[in-house]
Protein backbone atom coordinates (compact mmCIF):
# COMPACT_ATOMS: atom_id res chain seq x y z
CA UNK A 1 0.00 0.00 0.00
CA UNK A 2 0.99 3.61 -0.42
CA UNK A 3 1.11 6.27 2.28
CA UNK A 4 2.44 9.80 2.46
CA UNK A 5 5.45 10.07 4.72
CA UNK A 6 7.35 13.29 5.14
CA UNK A 7 5.79 14.82 2.07
CA UNK A 8 6.25 12.01 -0.38
CA UNK A 9 4.35 8.86 -1.23
CA UNK A 10 6.01 5.70 0.03
CA UNK A 11 5.19 2.16 -0.97
CA UNK A 12 4.85 -0.28 1.91
CA UNK A 13 4.94 -4.03 1.60
CA UNK A 14 3.52 -4.89 5.01
CA UNK A 15 0.35 -6.34 6.46
CA UNK A 16 -2.27 -3.62 6.82
CA UNK A 17 -2.50 -4.15 10.58
CA UNK A 18 1.18 -3.22 10.95
CA UNK A 19 1.52 -0.27 13.31
CA UNK A 20 2.90 2.80 11.59
CA UNK A 21 5.78 2.75 14.11
CA UNK A 22 7.18 -0.49 12.74
CA UNK A 23 6.55 0.46 9.14
CA UNK A 24 8.53 3.65 9.71
CA UNK A 25 11.36 1.98 11.56
CA UNK A 26 11.77 -1.38 9.91
CA UNK A 27 10.54 -0.75 6.40
CA UNK A 28 11.40 2.90 5.75
CA UNK A 29 14.47 3.22 7.97
CA UNK A 30 13.05 6.22 9.80
CA UNK A 31 14.34 5.25 13.22
CA UNK A 32 14.01 8.61 14.94
CA UNK A 33 10.53 7.56 16.06
CA UNK A 34 10.96 5.27 19.05
CA UNK A 35 9.31 2.23 20.58
CA UNK A 36 8.71 2.53 24.31
CA UNK A 37 5.57 0.68 25.35
CA UNK A 38 3.51 -0.39 22.33
CA UNK A 39 0.22 0.62 23.99
CA UNK A 40 0.12 4.44 23.70
CA UNK A 41 1.20 4.99 27.29
CA UNK A 42 4.63 6.58 26.86
CA UNK A 43 4.53 8.78 23.75
CA UNK A 44 8.01 7.84 22.47
CA UNK A 45 6.47 6.92 19.10
CA UNK A 46 4.71 10.24 18.49
CA UNK A 47 4.48 11.50 14.91
CA UNK A 48 2.36 14.21 13.35
CA UNK A 49 -0.56 13.08 11.21
CA UNK A 50 -2.22 15.92 9.36
CA UNK A 51 -0.36 18.18 11.78
CA UNK A 52 -1.60 16.58 15.00
CA UNK A 53 0.41 14.39 17.38
CA UNK A 54 -0.49 10.71 17.07
CA UNK A 55 0.97 7.59 18.71
CA UNK A 56 2.31 5.56 15.84
CA UNK A 57 2.52 2.37 17.91
CA UNK A 58 -1.29 2.03 17.94
CA UNK A 59 -1.97 3.40 14.47
CA UNK A 60 -2.24 0.68 11.84
CA UNK A 61 -1.03 1.65 8.39
CA UNK A 62 -4.53 0.83 7.13
CA UNK A 63 -5.73 4.01 8.86
CA UNK A 64 -3.40 6.24 6.86
CA UNK A 65 -5.06 6.30 3.45
CA UNK A 66 -5.01 9.91 2.28
CA UNK A 67 -3.34 11.23 5.38
CA UNK A 68 -0.04 12.97 5.79
CA UNK A 69 2.55 11.60 8.21
CA UNK A 70 5.50 13.69 9.40
CA UNK A 71 8.28 12.24 11.55
CA UNK A 72 11.07 13.81 13.62
CA UNK A 73 13.43 13.40 10.66
CA UNK A 74 11.48 15.86 8.52
CA UNK A 75 9.44 17.97 10.87
CA UNK A 76 9.75 21.62 9.88
CA UNK A 77 8.17 25.02 10.25
CA UNK A 78 8.52 27.77 12.83
CA UNK A 79 7.27 25.68 15.76
CA UNK A 80 9.63 22.83 14.98
CA UNK A 81 12.58 25.14 14.59
CA UNK A 82 11.82 26.96 17.80
CA UNK A 83 11.30 23.76 19.76
CA UNK A 84 14.40 21.99 18.53
CA UNK A 85 16.55 25.06 19.03
CA UNK A 86 15.30 25.36 22.60
CA UNK A 87 15.85 21.64 23.20
CA UNK A 88 19.50 21.89 22.12
CA UNK A 89 20.07 25.24 23.77
CA UNK A 90 18.84 24.02 27.14
CA UNK A 91 20.44 20.59 26.79
CA UNK A 92 17.12 18.95 27.55
CA UNK A 93 18.02 15.33 26.71
CA UNK A 94 19.64 12.95 29.12
CA UNK A 95 19.47 9.45 27.64
CA UNK A 96 17.55 11.09 24.80
CA UNK A 97 15.42 8.12 23.88
CA UNK A 98 12.02 9.70 24.56
CA UNK A 99 12.92 13.10 23.18
CA UNK A 100 11.74 12.62 19.61
CA UNK A 101 8.28 11.98 20.99
CA UNK A 102 8.51 14.81 23.49
CA UNK A 103 9.50 17.20 20.71
CA UNK A 104 6.69 16.08 18.40
CA UNK A 105 4.16 16.59 21.20
CA UNK A 106 5.60 20.00 22.02
CA UNK A 107 5.37 21.03 18.37
CA UNK A 108 1.77 19.81 18.27
CA UNK A 109 0.97 21.90 21.32
CA UNK A 110 2.56 25.08 20.02
CA UNK A 111 0.80 24.77 16.67
CA UNK A 112 -2.53 25.08 18.50
CA UNK A 113 -1.51 27.06 21.57
CA UNK A 114 1.45 29.32 20.81
CA UNK A 115 1.76 30.62 24.35
CA UNK A 116 0.97 27.75 26.71
CA UNK A 117 1.03 28.21 30.47
CA UNK A 118 2.32 25.53 32.83
CA UNK A 119 -1.05 23.81 33.01
CA UNK A 120 -1.38 23.69 29.23
CA UNK A 121 2.08 22.16 29.07
CA UNK A 122 1.14 19.57 31.69
CA UNK A 123 -2.02 18.70 29.79
CA UNK A 124 -0.35 18.43 26.40
CA UNK A 125 2.73 16.54 27.59
CA UNK A 126 0.96 14.18 30.01
CA UNK A 127 1.21 11.35 27.52
CA UNK A 128 4.99 11.48 27.15
CA UNK A 129 7.03 9.63 29.75
CA UNK A 130 10.65 10.51 30.41
CA UNK A 131 12.22 8.05 32.82
CA UNK A 132 15.22 10.39 33.20
CA UNK A 133 12.69 13.01 34.41
CA UNK A 134 13.93 15.80 32.17
CA UNK A 135 10.54 17.42 32.74
CA UNK A 136 11.81 20.72 34.21
CA UNK A 137 13.92 21.27 31.12
CA UNK A 138 11.13 20.15 28.79
CA UNK A 139 8.88 22.75 30.41
CA UNK A 140 11.56 25.42 30.18
CA UNK A 141 12.25 24.57 26.54
CA UNK A 142 8.57 24.84 25.58
CA UNK A 143 8.37 28.24 27.25
CA UNK A 144 11.57 29.28 25.48
CA UNK A 145 10.21 28.11 22.14
CA UNK A 146 6.98 30.02 22.72
CA UNK A 147 9.03 33.11 23.39
CA UNK A 148 10.96 32.62 20.14
CA UNK A 149 7.68 32.25 18.23
CA UNK A 150 6.42 35.47 19.74
CA UNK A 151 9.29 37.13 17.91
Amino acid sequence: MQISINGRPRELDVDVDTPLLWALRDDLGLTGTKFGCGIAQCGACTVLIDGNPVRSCVTPVSALEGRDVVTIEAVSGPEAEAVQKAWVGLDVPQCGYCQSGQIMSAIGLLKIEPKPDDQAINDAMAGNICRCATYPKIRAAIHAAAKTLEG
Binding site: D26, K34, E73, W87, V92
Partner: peptide, 21 residues
Protein backbone atom coordinates in the same frame (compact mmCIF):
# COMPACT_ATOMS: atom_id res chain seq x y z
CA UNK B 1 29.34 23.41 28.49
CA UNK B 2 26.87 22.41 25.77
CA UNK B 3 26.46 18.64 25.73
CA UNK B 4 27.88 16.95 22.63
CA UNK B 5 24.88 14.65 22.29
CA UNK B 6 22.05 17.17 22.58
CA UNK B 7 21.74 18.01 18.91
CA UNK B 8 21.48 14.45 17.65
CA UNK B 9 19.08 13.53 20.44
CA UNK B 10 16.87 16.49 19.60
CA UNK B 11 16.69 15.67 15.89
CA UNK B 12 16.01 11.95 15.86
CA UNK B 13 19.58 11.31 14.74
CA UNK B 14 21.01 9.64 17.81
CA UNK B 15 21.29 5.95 17.10
CA UNK B 16 20.45 3.45 19.77
CA UNK B 17 20.73 -0.31 19.55
CA UNK B 18 17.12 -0.63 18.45
CA UNK B 19 17.92 1.65 15.51
CA UNK B 20 20.59 -0.58 14.02
CA UNK B 21 19.67 -1.88 10.62
Amino acid sequence: LPKPDSFAKSHGQAQFTIDLR
